[in-house]
């Protein structure tokens, strides 16, 4: 594609222009108050930051910041408690749904969500995930699936695709050694305690908008005490996959989405 660079008009007063731009009425985009000003620890190009923003925006738009308690996991998002401008608890690896249960049961009027990666939720925390879901805990799980352990340096995750390379499956994931990628959202969706299960992604602007709508829906179902809601969000891990951000999003679309198809898996039936 040809890039067109407009000629700069040298007569424009840059300072005056700057002052004009930052006027309140001219601001077209602001960081949500649902996030703090702390710099994110995520790699440039990673989807975590986008999902953080979406959650922050949903909390701001629903005007529920004072009513939300977030549970951070262990993994890349271990520092989530420094990024959300919310009261936050940091759980042990995989235990977020149990911690969230303790919070929700004693603070039933609050919105409680966990933010977990695939290793946290679908490997070490499988038991906590399934049982929180089966009890129909009125919590929301935001599940970031990037098919890899990012924080510890790119090891194989339960969601790593067959033949996908990682530092602990350097020749690719082999079915007869490592088993299959685990679709845990599909697994727990049939449980009667789960009201809403959906898989979204943040690799294109259109998908980002859909993911945000899903997060909002999940919070609304939580308010209606319908049971556990899980929003799985497919995200890239450009560092772990050893790709550029653009390549990784393309790779995700071409490879990950076949195993992890996007869309609602379960929505509440009753009115």
């Amino acid at each position: 594609m040809e890039t067109v660079i407009e000629k700069t008009n040298v007569n424009v007063d840059i300072e005056a222009l700057r002052k004009e731009i930052i006027k309140e009425e001219n601001i077209v985009f602001k960081k949500t108050i649902g996030l703090t000003d702390n710099p994110l620890s995520y790699c440039p190009g990673c989807g975590h930051g986008v999902v953080h923003r979406l959650i922050g925006e949903v909390c701001e738009e629903m005007e529920i910041i004072q009513d939300v308690i977030a549970i951070a996991p262990v993994g890349c998002s271990v520092f989530a408690y420094d990024f959300f401008n919310l009261d936050t608890q940091s759980a042990a690896h995989g235990r977020a749904p149990a911690v969230a249960t303790g919070v929700k049961r004693t603070m039933p009027d609050k919105y409680v969500f966990t933010y977990q990666g695939d290793g946290d939720l679908a490997a070490i925390g499988t038991g906590e995930t399934i049982h929180a879901a089966n009890r129909g805990e009125n919590i929301t799980i935001i599940f970031i699936n990037n098919g890899i352990y990012g924080m510890t340096g790119g090891q194989m995750a339960p969601t790593t695709l067959l033949n996908m390379k990682s530092s602990t499956s350097p020749y690719g994931r082999e079915m007869d050694v490592h088993g299959y990628p685990l679709n845990i959202t599909d697994m727990i969706a049939p449980l009667r305690g789960v009201c809403y299960a959906t898989r979204q992604s943040v690799h294109t602007p259109a998908n980002v908008r859909k993911a945000k709508a899903a997060i909002k829906k999940a919070f609304e179902y939580q308010k209606l005490k319908k049971g556990l809601s899980i929003v799985e969000i497919m995200s890239n891990c450009n560092s772990g996959w050893k790709m550029t951000p653009v390549q990784s999003n393309k790779w995700m679309e071409e490879n990950m989405l076949e195993n992890f198809p996007l869309g609602d898996i379960k929505v509440p039936q009753d009115k």
């Binding site: 042990a92 969230a100 049982h131």
Partner: peptide, 17 residues
């Protein structure tokens, strides 16, 4: 709870509140 591990982590959550 579903396990002693879950139970103590539920305690963590409630105690954190």
């Amino acid at each position: 709870a579903e396990s002693e591990i879950a139970a103590i982590n539920m305690v963590y959550g409630a105690a954190g509140c």
